[in-house]
Computed example of a mutant assay.
Amino acid sequence: MKTYIILLRGVNVGGKNLLPMKELKKVLEGAGFEQVKTYIQSGNIVLLSDSNPETEISGLIQAEFGFTPQILVLENDEFTGCVANNPYQALEGKSVHFYFCKTKPQINEEKLAALISATESYQLVEKVFYLHAPDGIGRSKLVANIEACLGVAATGRNLNTVNKLTDMVKNT
């Protein structure tokens, strides 16, 4: 069995796509996934599976909860590589954000330059857009338009969440 990190996009946000993690964990365990762990309500899952669980999880969520979120599945080695590639490892966890993408982004440099603030910095490494936003992301024009700048769908997690997922993987 392999360890997978599953990132659900757009769940439990603004009262939409409600997906209680405790209930989801029971559904996933009932479907045969092993060592299922979830973290906070934003759709972070670590589990063991014989094969990539994306299609099965998508179907289970649709059947049990009535919607299908976008799902990004990373194998342990891929996730570990994303963590190792973080160019902002020494910075405060809440100011560093990972935007995970299924395919490599094609950054629209013109849009990005128009939206990025003077305090924000970024690096693209393979399929992860790393953003350092020391002033937070709540009012960031770049974050509000991140997918338009990347040209692909993305799901973001801050470094604190990524570190927690890393710990969960180690204990799987």
Rank of each mutant, 00 (worst) to 15 (best):
M1I: 10
Y4H: 02
I6P: 01
K16T: 10
L19I: 10
M21V: 09
L24R: 11
L24P: 07
K25S: 08
K26S: 14
V27Q: 09
V27G: 12
L28Q: 07
L28I: 08
E29I: 10
G30I: 02
F33M: 13
E34V: 05
T38Y: 04
I40C: 12
S51N: 12
N52F: 01
P53D: 05
I57D: 09
S58G: 15
I61A: 13
I61G: 12
Q62H: 12
Q62V: 03
Q62I: 03
A63K: 15
A63E: 15
G66S: 05
F67K: 05
F67G: 05
I71P: 06
V73G: 01
V73I: 00
L74S: 00
L74Q: 04
L74I: 00
E75N: 08
E75C: 03
E75R: 13
N76T: 08
T80R: 15
T80M: 14
G81P: 01
C82H: 03
V83A: 06
V83M: 10
N86R: 06
N86M: 02
P87I: 07
P87S: 07
Q89P: 00
Q89G: 12
G93M: 03
G93S: 12
G93E: 05
K94M: 04
S95Q: 15
V96H: 03
Y99T: 01
Y99F: 14
C101G: 03
K102D: 10
K104T: 04
K104A: 11
K104Q: 11
K104H: 00
P105D: 08
P105G: 11
I107G: 07
I107K: 14
E109M: 10
E109V: 07
A113I: 07
A114W: 00
A114N: 09
A114P: 00
A118Q: 13
A118H: 07
S121I: 10
Y122T: 11
Y122I: 09
Q123L: 14
Q123H: 11
Q123Y: 02
L124V: 07
V125F: 04
V125W: 01
V125C: 04
E126V: 01
K127E: 04
V128F: 02
V128H: 06
F129G: 11
P134W: 08
D135W: 04
D135V: 08
G136D: 07
G138N: 06
R139F: 00
S140W: 02
N145S: 09
I146M: 14
A148G: 10
A153M: 13
T155Q: 10
N158M: 11
N158D: 11
N158K: 14
N158G: 08
L159E: 12
L159D: 07
N160H: 13
T161V: 12
L165E: 08
L165D: 09
T166M: 02
D167Y: 02
M168V: 04
N171K: 15
T172W: 02
